[in-house]
């Protein structure tokens, strides 16, 4: 088992024929991901990368049986692409696009929340279940299969963590990059809930950063639900100054609760093993898992 995506997922690419969509669709197909087609309005009926192109997501669902979508649509149109996917019967939406206006995302999230759909992102590296499906832009070879669920706000830091986990002799069930924007679909808490309910996942690595309350909310939930699986946590931004946006739109220390130190304390208090050094994530997982 794994969560969100596996070898049975029937995946389409929204923004299929664009530069980013094409490049990453090629990479995903090369990884062995079950891409069943793509959507580019006005190019329906064509073939791209030997896969069918559809005008609408509805066509892709009806004709190719799509149930999962990855979105590379430009920021101005990306929220609409998310809503289209949700309206057309897609069950898992992975939005890669960076720079979507916040008010657009507020409406898209509210719409998606009322449907039986899971949205990952936006502004995220995607989701990968090693050896089965890569629905994202991450380098697939870094992710080795194993018993650890990985959830992270960041892109390259996710790869770093997965690499360290692999080198410690363990591996990943599924890695979920939830994204660093202020308004996102799936939260840290929801990702952790998925892993807690996944029989294959034996331990969890949670990579957070300054800004917002996602990590603290997740930590409290973990304790309230009986700390069923060991969780290792890292919070990036211990040295970030107050009031400055650190790259990610959401990474800004506002109040005292937004600081890395405050978050790490909350994680610790709720039974999570906190790693201070980002170079020790793998070693800590290994120790906590007793392997």
């Amino acid at each position: 088992m794994s969560v969100l995506v596996d070898k049975r997922s029937r995946i389409i690419v929204q923004g299929f024929t664009g530069k980013e969509g094409t490049f990453h669709a090629e990479q995903m197909i090369a990884y062995g991901t079950n891409i069943v087609g793509g959507v580019t309005p006005g190019k329906g009926g064509q073939t791209h990368l030997e896969k069918p192109v559809f005008n609408t997501v509805e066509d892709a669902v009806k004709q190719a049986g799509a149930d999962t979508s990855i979105i590379f649509v430009p920021p101005a149109f990306a929220a609409d692409a998310i809503i289209e996917a949700a309206a057309s019967g897609i069950k898992v939406i992975v939005a890669i696009t960076e720079g979507i206006p916040v008010q657009d995302m507020i409406r898209a999230k509210a719409y998606v929340d009322n449907k039986d759909v899971r949205l990952i992102g936006p502004n995220c590296p995607g989701v990968i279940t090693p050896d089965e499906a890569k629905v994202g832009i991450m380098p697939g070879f870094v992710f080795k299969r194993g018993p650890i669920g990985l959830v992270s706000k960041s892109g390259t830091l996710t790869y770093e963590a997965a690499d360290q986990v692999a080198k410690s002799g363990l591996g990943i069930t599924t890695a979920i990059g939830i994204g660093g924007d202020p308004v996102i679909g799936t939260t840290t808490l929801e990702a952790i809930e998925l892993f807690m309910n996944d029989p294959e996942t034996e331990g969890i690595v949670m990579i957070g950063e300054i800004g917002g309350t996602l990590e603290a909310d997740a930590a409290r939930w973990i304790k309230a639900n009986g700390n069923k699986k060991p969780v290792v946590g890292f919070i990036a931004g211990q040295t970030a100054p107050k009031g400055r946006k650190m790259g990610h739109a959401g990474a800004i220390v506002g109040g005292a609760d937004d600081t890395a130190a405050a978050k790490m304390r909350i994680l610790s208090e709720n039974g999570i093993t906190v790693v201070e050094s980002p170079a020790q994530i793998g070693a800590t997982v290994k120790r906590v898992m007793g392997k």
């Binding site: 960041s154 892109g155 996710t158 990036a236 931004g237 040295t239 650190m246 790259g247 990474a251």
Partner: peptide, 29 residues
């Protein structure tokens, strides 16, 4: 470039915001 000036003594250049913050933390450690 996505740059924020700070007061320290080790400059850093990283790809990705999360890894950049983690690298700053590692410099401090």
């Amino acid at each position: 470039l996505n740059y924020v000036k700070l007061d320290g003594n080790v400059g850093c250049m990283v790809n990705g915001a999360g890894l950049a913050m983690a690298t700053m933390d590692l410099i401090k450690l």
